[in-house]
Write a protein that binds this DNA or RNA. Structure first.
Length: 206
DNA sequence: TATACGATCACCT
DNA sequence: GGTGATCGTATAC
């Protein structure tokens, strides 16, 4: 399987978010492959987007988002969870896609152990959950996903456009348009998106 | 140095 | 529907 290349990520962030649906996130742990197809993602775009961590400028934390596309921006949140993003757009412009949910494929037995849950839909149906299931933490912050041995992205089958829906981003409470921007994309009929099962409230993309 | 809070989750009613 | 856990980060003193 081919890996996604830097040119895939050096594009408009919303386009990257949409095109990441169906691609395979792969993590190697103890020589074993843990993987799943991406079914939910969110775009965070530049300093003008108040929901984006870079809205407060360039700091040690946000440094990676200003760097080259295709690198991993991994942050620690709520004292106990990690979230995985992929840096997008040209180097120097801070933007990234948050990977919010996967459909588990390989290494599911290992994911059970790392997650300690009973329902397969709970393994990777949220940004914090998928980082637990795939043993992703800040030690991997800043790595190049296009050239790394233990965390990378492989080409998967594309998702048909009529299966893709959009919504506002989850957990965003900021003033202005950022809270209303429909920059979450997900596979509408997947049981593995966060919060599923849910009623479809947003129309599919054209 | 001190403090408030978050791109979440699990468990409660 | 609601809330506590738990700590790095940004920001204020």
């Amino acid at each position: 399987m081919g890996r996604l290349s830097p040119s895939f990520f050096a594009r408009d962030t919303l386009a990257v978010a949409r095109d990441l649906l169906g691609q395979r996130l792969v993590r190697i742990v103890n020589g074993r492959r843990l993987s799943g197809r991406i079914v939910e993602a969110e775009a965070y775009v530049g300093e003008d987007d108040l929901a984006c961590h870079a809205s407060r400028g360039r700091t040690r934390r946000t440094e990676v988002m200003y760097g080259p596309p295709g690198h991993a921006y991994i942050y620690f949140i709520y004292g106990m969870y990690h979230c995985l993003n992929v840096v997008t757009e040209a180097e120097g412009f801070p933007a990234a896609v948050l990977v919010r949910a996967l459909e588990p494929e390989e290494g599911i037995a290992d994911m059970w152990a790392y997650r300690g849950c009973q329902d397969e839909r709970e393994l990777t149906s949220g940004p914090g959950k998928l980082c637990m299931a795939l043993q992703i933490d800040r030690r991997l912050n800043g790595i190049d996903l296009c050239d790394h041995g233990e965390l990378f992205l492989e080409e998967g089958e594309p998702i048909a456009p009529h299966r893709i829906a959009t919504s506002t981003r989850i957990g965003i409470r900021v003033p202005g348009w950022a809270a209303e921007a429909p920059w979450r994309v997900y596979v509408a009929d997947s049981p593995f998106v966060s919060g599923a099962p849910r009623r479809a409230t947003h129309r599919a993309m054209r």
